[in-house]
Every structure is written in C-alpha cells, then in structure tokens.
Design a protein around this nucleic acid. Sequence first.
DNA 1: TGCATTCCTAGACGAACGGTCTAATAATTA
DNA 2: TAATTATTAGACCGTTCGTCTAGGAATGCA
Lengths: 233, 233
Amino acid sequence: MGDSVKSAVRPAVKVPPGTLPFAAAAVGECEGRRPRGRPAGRCATRDDLVQAGIGIFTEQGFASTGIDAVLREVGVPKGSFYHYFASKEEFGLAVIDGYARHYDDKLARQFGDARIAPLDRFGGFLVEARRGMRKHGFRKGCLVGNLGQEFGCAHEMFAKRLAAVLKGWQRVVGACLREAQAAGELAATADVDKLAKLFWIGWEGAVMRARLERSSRPLDIFMEFYLAQLRPT
Amino acid sequence: MGDSVKSAVRPAVKVPPGTLPFAAAAVGECEGRRPRGRPAGRCATRDDLVQAGIGIFTEQGFASTGIDAVLREVGVPKGSFYHYFASKEEFGLAVIDGYARHYDDKLARQFGDARIAPLDRFGGFLVEARRGMRKHGFRKGCLVGNLGQEFGCAHEMFAKRLAAVLKGWQRVVGACLREAQAAGELAATADVDKLAKLFWIGWEGAVMRARLERSSRPLDIFMEFYLAQLRPT
DNA sequence: TGCATTCCTAGACGAACGGTCTAATAATTA
DNA sequence: TAATTATTAGACCGTTCGTCTAGGAATGCA
C-alpha cells in the first residue's frame, strides 16, 4: 500500500568512510538478548531501531508496520534486530519505553518550568505541540494514543504499560496544577487529580482529531475549553 | 494471537432445514460488484458481513483483522466476500457507512428527544454509552475513533469519510445545544458549533481511555466537565 | 423445457510477513 | 596468536492475507 518513496536507505551504517562498518556499534556495551536486569547500557544500533520504531509506529501504527520497514529505515539486517529483541512485541514495548522516556523529560521541562506562571505553562505546551504536528504534516500523532487505540485492552501487556505512561503524565500535570493552587491561580477546592486526568483524556482526543483533519484547530479548541475550566471568568 | 473461542461457526447459512443454502440469499436483489449507483437493495450475506465487520473492527481495529476472521464469524467462504467487496478497503468503507447509519439514527433519537430537556439528553447519552461499553467488557470502543486513530491521514479516503461522519454527529449535538439556547438552558452567547466540536473531540478521547483502562470513569469525568462548561454555576 | 445470463460459492494461489536459523565477521580476552 | 564473545548477514520456513479463476445455483426468456 502506501509505500512512500522516503526510504532513502542510508548506507548500511553511518560511519566515517574508511572505517569498517562494525567499528561503530561495538563501542558501548550493548544489552544482549533480553537482559534480565532493567537499565542496559546505550547501544547505537539498538537505539536507532527504537528511534525508528517511534517514528514509524507513531505514523502508521503497530500492526500495519512490518519489521522490515524499520530495518530498511535504519539500514540494518534482520539478524541484528532479533539479536536485540526477542520478538516484535518486545520491540514494541521498548519503543513505548523510549517514547515515554523522551516525553517524560519534555513534559517535566514544560510543566515544571518555574520561570513561567503555572497555568501559563499549558499555553507553552500547546504552542509546542502545534508546531510539532505541523512539522510532520499532521501525519504523526501521539504514540501512546495510537497504540492505546489500536490495542485497547486486547494486549494486556501493552495496555498496562500505556496506562502507566499516561498516569505518569498525569502526575506531571497534577503537580503543575498544585503549583497553580499554591499561587492562587486555581481554586483551592479544585480536584487536581481529576482535572489532570481530564486533561489527558481530552488532549489525546484532540490529537487524534487533529491528525484526522490535518489541522491544529482541535488542539486549540480543547485547550481553550480546558483553561476556561481552570480559571472561570 | 487472541483467538477467542467464540467463533461458534454457524451452519453455513441460516435457513430452515431442508431448504437449499442458496435459496436464502438469492431472494433480495443484492448489489453486484461495485454498483455505481448509491443505495443498493438489502442482501442478507452482505449485511451479515458488514455487521460482523463492525463488531470485529470496533474491537481489534482494521489492520490487525484478517478477512478470514470476518468470514469465519459469518460462516461464508472467501469467494462470497470478494463478490460483494472489491477489496478489504472497500469493505472497510462499507463498514464505516453501516456503523454511521446505525449511529446517526441512535444519536438523532437521543439528542432529539423532545420529551427531555435539551441538556439532560447528554446524561441519557452517557448512561447508554456506559452500558454499551460495560456490556462488551470494555473491549469495544467507537469504530470511528478506532479507525481515525489507525489511519490518521494516511488513508485519504478513510480520513475523509470519518471526518464527514464526525461532522454529522456534531450537527446533531449542535442542534440539541441550539434547542438548549432557545429553552434558556444555555447562554445565548455560547458558540454552539465550537461546543459541539469540543464534545466529540473529548468524547472520543474518553472512549479510548475507557477502553484502555476497562472503566467507564473517563466517560464520567469528561461528561461532568463538559456539562459544567455548558451551565456554569 | 432448454439455453443464456446473472448471481453467488468454493477454495487454490502467490506474495508478504513474522520469526528462526546457520554462517560469517569483528571485538575482546588471554 | 588463539579462543571466546558480540554482532551482522540474509536465506529460509510456516502462516496468514488478499486476490483470482472456475464452476455451481438461480433466474429470465424463448
């Protein structure tokens, strides 16, 4: 189907010419096949795969993306893939983790920025999101939203992981709202946890709609409503 | 994967015993292969396929569902399928249409029910939705949301169709809101169109989240805040 | 009733995909 | 240098998906 022509197929591995391909990846200690321990050291190839996975899954979803597409993008053969990941499913989880890690940081920065009044941070978040979606031609949404919709509760493991990620994001927004309360920007009686949850419920809906319509308008509409809710006139 | 044991495999076609299988379907005029004209007469087999498609796609999505799963559920061979639909894609569109037709009616009934005060109709809608999701163990969400997320803008045709369906639903809610204005339940200055759009943005987000968490709580949360928005204390 | 036509069923078929496997090559250690 | 480990390479297999061709059942017309 939509086999866009973008796969510019990098030259196998990106290293200075003259260097043998293998030299690049083998520097850091890569995690072998399913390392029982959590963290695992950085590994260029593995990270590249995860990175590519984020991009492709965010755009096309999980089920309709073949491993081969990821492989092609990174310029890596299948053997490497199954050296790092036991299965497509495990890869999917790693991609979620990678995305979550990236976003946790980003959100912490945006919603924890002490230089800005708590409720004004939402505006900054909106601007950033709008720019991000426009940059990708509204083809990419939110990976968590995509996979959440795709698997619903079907895939136990995925659903749990995704719900956990959302819960983390809620905590960040919740903290910001509490700051707003402390600063007198938000009513002390407001139910912060519920409001934080509401934010992500509506925001994911807005992102989805924005992608469908190729427009950032849904993001604006939801945010306008949400902020009005926080500070009633 | 999740090959649930539910496929009770109906006996080929459901007709009174003694009748030859073919007798059943051949009564109504079925639309042949891609009838240029719109409507097309009813056809049992075709309708069954669409019906099954609604159920399965709503639960598992489009990409990860094989035609075979639909076929098995209805008890029909592949040949029949490709007699009625030129491709899986065309089938998908027919399923969307079927779903939309069903929901248009349902929404018109719920949001147009003159016996109930306009804004109270939202409550009825919520109750109904909650019951529906619970009935299916929160495995099914909204087909439009599912496919919207799945294809984003990837599939031009699908995106257009889905956006149109949502626009229709917005009109229904919008009309209800206008009634509310006329009845003095909603401020005359309220931007009805924007509010109607907001409703479906947030609602789809809530349905998705409800499915992910297997809980109707997200539906409640969104509706609570949406109504608060309509009638500020 | 017989023939032509249309409608629908039946399942074989090729392509593609996910995943595995063996072999080869680089890095690391001794 | 030799032995060992880490990583790459891609052929290969079983399955599943969507398409397609062939043929049986019903219908219309003579």
